[in-house]
Amino acid sequence: MATSPAIEMQALEHRYNSDPVLRSIDLTIEHGEIFGFLGHNGAGKTTAVNILTTLITPTGGNARVCGFDVVRERAEVTRCIGYLPSEVRMYPHLTAVENLEFFARLSGVEQPRKAARDTLDYLECADLGDLRVGTFSSGMRQRVGIAQAILHQPRVLFLDEPTTGLDPMGVRQLRETILRLNADLQMTVFMNTHLLSEVAKVCTTIGVLSHGELIYKDSIEATVARFPDEATLEDIYARVDAATVGDLP
């Protein structure tokens, strides 16, 4: 399956009732990339992630993850992905390790308890292991949420607004974690985010979604070279978001 792209969308569409949320998206992300999906609120980023993680069925087009169709080969897709929703809660009456052990069992991980503790160790938050998730701050929950997303060592990791609820140190730690996962495990990362400063530091490729249309996609280096007059990624994003596809250099 190494020849298939990590993620592939072809004419992908989705409507809520009759309102189009995604309009004919064509996008390919290769293995090992860290992809930043940018767009204003309501642009359709979360819908795209929900489709790619098999949580909703697209109303048109098709999408493949690790070469598997997200509708027809749901089981295969879910075996190769990890997912962190934008506001992770988990089971408050269970400890972090118990939560992780439960999800590890469902993913078929051998020695689930050990995997849970090892993952917390890897994320440098082993001290949270025996505490109940119900007592956690949103930042602590987010870290355990990341642990549940990676404990089965998925090939593709989907992060939906992963910096939500994190303090600056948490954001920095998340950035380092993503880079480590990508370097150590060659994990492909698909990240929805608003934090452009983080995108510049972490992502290898970006895509910009506006009103359900993919209006831009390129590597970070190429993007910076393409907009030599703009000082920051934020400036570039503002220009891309305001332009139509034909207006871009």
Binding site: N50, T53, I81, R89, Y91, P92, F103
Partner: peptide, 18 residues
Amino acid sequence: QRERTNRTLPLLRSRPVT
């Protein structure tokens, strides 16, 4: 209610659980 309040249904369904 538990799955809805804890928002854990997406976490379950994004795993190989039918």
